[in-house]
């Protein structure tokens, strides 16, 4: 395998890791505050549809972004209502949200566009186009470093850069601010947060709103950056891979970056069976590469490779003492 092929695979890795990264960080904020969310998938899907649909109608990807994020946050609000206000089962609520999104997107897509549950394909200003970093052309002649710069680092849509910058931002918010400390405490020991006079309910709603925002960005990137338009079920399990990445990362932002890149790499490889065959000289079935993130997660969960311990109060509705 030559260097350029490697760069291509890594470039695809970055693209495929971006939606995972947004969703993974979304789950991280939410679960750190004590709310389990298996509805990442649904929020992502809803956002993908509404961003593509509104971008197609308005011609502006930024208005699309706004619509996508709004849709995702609305579903996050439903999750908050069910799991915080009405103290329902957070897992059941997440499952319900996935189905709501999966049904509604196709119904509305068919009603609006009549193309069998997809949006028209987006082009021009209705998409997030690739950004060429300065000097990319100039340096592309330079072997290795220049090539990497031009092929790998340059030429992504703005959301990719935003996604990667969200990692240090999340780290800083969760581990270096007062809000982050309280958020983590709400996920470990909400009674203590309450005793300190901080409103657990409001804290958890804030976390869910951030989760909705980030899931929204994941969906927007999926439909307007990675691909040009919405198709039925286009999130295709990414919400669950992100959940897997979150466990793999043990609920830490920098580890999340690493695990999302790893899972993105597996996805990139499953697109290039020829590369896999050339490198390993084995005929690895594509299905195995598809299933690898899930298998790895099970192995991690089984505690064979380090132990993943979720936030202690995760999944428990907080009931204030009277």
């Amino acid at each position: 395998m030559d260097f350029l092929t490697l760069l291509q695979v890594l470039d695809t890795t970055v693209r495929l890791a971006t939606p995972l990264l947004f969703a993974c960080l979304a789950g991280l904020v939410c679960e750190r505050a004590g709310i389990f969310d298996i509805g990442l998938e649904g929020k992502m899907l809803a956002s993908a549809f509404f961003s593509a649909a509104v971008a197609a109608i308005s011609g502006s990807v930024w208005i699309g972004l706004l619509a996508g994020v709004t849709a995702s946050m609305a579903l996050a609000g439903v999750h908050g209502l069910a799991s915080i206000t009405f103290r329902g089962n957070q897992l059941i609520s997440g499952v319900a949200i996935n189905f709501l999104a999966s049904g509604l997107t196709v119904l509305i897509a068919q009603d609006w566009f009549g193309q069998g549950g997809r949006t028209p394909s987006l082009s021009g200003g209705a998409r997030f186009n690739e950004i060429k970093l300065p000097f990319a052309d100039l340096l592309s002649g330079l072997p290795y470093i220049g090539q990497s710069y031009a092929e790998l680092f340059s030429g992504h849509s703005i959301l990719v850069y935003v996604g990667f910058l969200t990692v240090p931002l999340t780290w800083w918010v969760i581990f270096r601010t007062r809000f982050g400390l309280r958020l983590r405490a709400a996920g470990e020991n909400p009674e203590a947060v309450d005793t300190a006079g901080v409103n657990v309910i409001r804290l958890r709603y804030t976390a869910i709103a951030i989760c909705g925002l980030l899931c929204g960005l994941a969906g927007v990137y999926l439909a307007t950056g990675l691909q040009a338009g919405f198709v039925k079920e286009m999130s295709s399990g990414r919400g669950f891979i992100a959940l897997a990445a979150l466990i793999f990362a043990k609920w830490r932002p920098w580890y999340a970056l690493f695990s999302c890149l790893l899972f993105g790499f597996f996805q990139a490889l499953s697109f290039r069976p020829d590369v896999v065959k050339a490198v390993t000289s084995l005929d690895v079935p594509g299905q195995l590469l598809d299933a690898l993130p899930y298998i790895l997660t099970v192995v991690i969960l089984a505690g064979f490779v380090g132990k993943a311990i979720p936030p202690r109060a995760g999944g428990e509705p907080y009931v204030k003492e009277n």
Binding site: V78, L81, A82, S83, F86, G88, N89, Q90, I92, S93, V95, A96, I97, N98, F99, L100, A101, S102, G103, L104, V106, L107
Partner: peptide, 15 residues
């Protein structure tokens, strides 16, 4: 699928 989601939401999570 939508109806299924609503039933799960209301009979399960929003009980």
């Amino acid at each position: 699928i939508l109806i299924q989601g609503l039933v799960i939401l209301f009979t399960g999570a929003l009980d």
